[in-house]
């Protein structure tokens, strides 16, 4: 027992001594704050989300890294679009000429539905096949690629970009995924889309009831 305690103390001391704050901690903090923002935003925790976004922006500015700052602004814009909030990405546009990053430009074009074929290669890998399907106007393939995506936020964003062309099954799948992650804001948005698509009155009533319960909390 004595040996175990001594060992634990020694490990704690060693780990304490070996620990060192990284020099680019601002970048890590900005990234961490943005990850937190994504979750809190989709959970519907507006106050926490706002605080996280401010923190992400503040830390990005601390390093005077405009690429990181532009990514934060663009990410925030993408999240807004993913839950149906109209966003023209003004913050990103104001910085885009300072950054000149093809990847970011492609991403911006993707989320604003102005993507060109030559930009597909600069998109994140997860979106490339999906984007190609859209440009080819292959709705079935687009729906399939969307379902295949293993990141929920990517699914939500992609779905929002082609919401008019989504099948009811895909919408229900998205609602199920969002519900699994606890992303209340996304669930509410997609329930509204589903309600508009549904012609069945009983189903509409059920969706309305679900919405009233979710929105009342």
């Amino acid at each position: 027992m004595k040996n175990i305690i001594l060992l634990a103390i020694a490990i704690l001391l060693l780990s304490g001594c070996s620990f060192k704050t990284p020099d680019n901690s601002w970048q890590l903090k900005s990234s961490s704050a943005f990850e937190s923002y994504k979750k809190n935003f989709l959970y519907g925790y507006d106050r926490l989300a706002s605080n996280d976004l401010q923190s992400a922006v503040a830390h990005a500015k601390m390093g005077a890294d405009f690429t990181t700052l532009a990514r934060v602004y663009l990410g925030a814009c993408a999240l807004n679009i993913s839950v149906g909030i109209q966003d023209e990405c003004k913050n990103y546009k104001a910085l885009s000429n300072l950054v000149e990053d093809q990847k970011l430009n492609a991403y911006h074009a993707f989320i604003t539905s102005s993507l060109e074929t030559k930009q597909i290669q600069h998109l994140p890998a997860i979106y490339q096949k999906f984007a190609l399907s859209i440009l080819k106007s292959d709705q079935k393939s687009a729906n399939e690629e969307l379902i295949k995506m293993d990141t929920i936020t990517s699914q939500l964003l992609s779905a929002a970009i082609i919401k008019e062309k989504l099948s009811k099954t895909t919408i229900q799948s998205i609602i199920k995924s969002a519900s699994f992650y606890g992303y209340k804001r996304a669930v509410i948005y997609w329930l509204k889309i589903l309600k508009d698509r549904t012609t069945d009155t009983d189903e509409k009533k059920i969706i309305n009831k679900k919405l009233s319960v979710l929105e009342s909390v």
Binding site: F19, T21, P22, N24, S25, Q27, L28, K29, S30, S31, S32, F34, E35, K38, A56, A60, T68, R71, V72, L74, G75, A78, L79, S82, Y107, P124, T151, T153, S154, L156, L157
Partner: peptide, 19 residues
Amino acid sequence: MDKVDSLMQTQENSEVKLP
């Protein structure tokens, strides 16, 4: 909290991941 976070973070996490 930042120090605790930094224990778990790696350089790979330093880039802001877009949705």
